Amino acid sequence: MALPGARACAGLVLAASMAVAQAAAPQACRGTIYLTFDTGSQSQAELIANTLNKHHVKATFFLANEKTVRGDWSLDPSWAGYWKARVAEGHAFGSHTFDHVYWQRDLPKGAMVVKPQFGEHAGQKLTWSAGQYCDELRRVDTRFAELTGHHLDPLFRAPGGHTSPNLLAAAKSCGYAHVGWAKAGFSGDETSSEVYPNAVLLKRALDNLKDGDIFMAHMGIWSRKDPWAPSVLEPLITGLQQKGFCFATLREHPDYSSTAAK
């Protein structure tokens, strides 16, 4: 017969073991947030990758061939190792147009006026057909496959989020679905850090993001004096996790999962 003290000790051990097991067991998500990152100056590229990896978070990256703080371009061969590592980690990838091409206005017969930010025609207003817009989306996929051996997911984000009936129809004709972001998912990293300090942006996101929201930030913004990611990304992730949120790529988003599976 076990002594009372032994029974009490055994009870404490059992209770402690159950507490450890409960703490180790995965908690049910109260919702899912979809983190997305557009290429930019790439000043925060390594920090973003390290933070996501540290917290076992998968995100979706939208790629354009943008000038970086290293003096190269974000889809140069010099970035192949970076993108290969993100592929291996299980992130998702979409097109952001190769030359970061802004839509300007629609024209008859599906045509549109566009303005590339980079490339041979940077700063020029061009008239493109639907086919030419598709070619621009596919340029990113071709380069990404050359760098990593993997293709993009059939997703794209128009620079600035500016779309139109002609632009969306053009992209749909070549199999790309457009991805915007939730109102609460606007990181504000393009805004003035004097007017919108990082603490304000962090609080706004933590207070307002809800299940299913797509969050958008950049991999570095040239104009922001106090960079967003070093101050905000990790506390945003841990804060949302503490509120019971999980994270996933857009491959798992109900609006895009069927598209991404094709």
Score class of each variant (00 low, 15 high):
G119F: 05
N65L: 02
A8I: 13
V140P: 01
R70L: 14
A80E: 12
W222C: 03
V87F: 12
D141K: 00
D76C: 09
W103L: 13
D76H: 13
H218G: 04
N208G: 08
W128R: 01
A158K: 04
T148F: 04
A21G: 10
S223R: 14
A217Y: 03
T68K: 09
A8P: 01
R251D: 11
S231G: 09
T127N: 08
A45P: 01
I221Y: 03
G71N: 10
P154D: 03
A260M: 09
K109S: 15
G175V: 09
D135W: 00
A8K: 10
H91K: 04
F62A: 00
G188W: 04
D213S: 06
Q241N: 01
A229G: 00
S257F: 05
S95M: 00
A229H: 00
V20D: 03
A23R: 14
W128G: 00
V195T: 15
A248S: 14
A199D: 14
S41R: 12
Q241G: 13
A260R: 00
G239H: 05
E190S: 15
L236Q: 04
S173N: 05
A169P: 03
K109Y: 14
L206C: 09
L201Q: 13
I214Q: 05
A171I: 00
V113W: 00
A229E: 10
D106K: 01
F118W: 13
C174P: 02
G160P: 05
F93C: 05
H218W: 11
T249G: 12
L52I: 04
G90W: 08
G244M: 10
L12M: 12
A248T: 07
D38G: 06
V114K: 02
P197W: 05
L63S: 05
